[in-house]
Amino acid sequence: MTSPLEQKKIKIAGPSIVTANRTWDGAVVYRTAGHGWSTDLTEAAVVRTADAARDLLSEAAADDVNAVGPYIAPVAVDQTGTIAPGNLRERIRLDGVTIPLLPVAVAA
C-alpha cells in the first residue's frame, strides 16, 4: 500500500528543510544530511527539488521515535551559504518568542 506521504503531492517554492520537534522535550530540531537531527539550523540538510524534499521528509517521518510532526519549511540561503528561516513562524521557532518571558521581578 502506498503511504499517505507518497500519495501527497509535494511542492516547494525554493530552498527548503525538514523540521520537527524532538520527542522527549519538544525542542525544535532540523533534519541533517547525516540522517539525524540537530537543534542548529545551520546543520540542516537543504533541498531544492520536490523529489528531494519528499525523500528527506520520508526519511524524517520514519524516525518517529526521536522527532514528532516533521514538515517541510522554506529557508533563505545567501551567497555565503548561510541558512535563515523563510517565514515568521520558522523565525520564531528558531529565535524564540518575540516578547519578554518573565512579566515582573518580584520585590524581595
Partner: peptide, 20 residues
Amino acid sequence: EDEFKMLRLQNGVYLQLHAY
C-alpha cells in the same frame, strides 16, 4: 506518535511551536 497523540491530548498535552 499517532498512537500516543490521543493519549497525551486526553492529559492536556499539546505540541506547540517550541515545546510541549
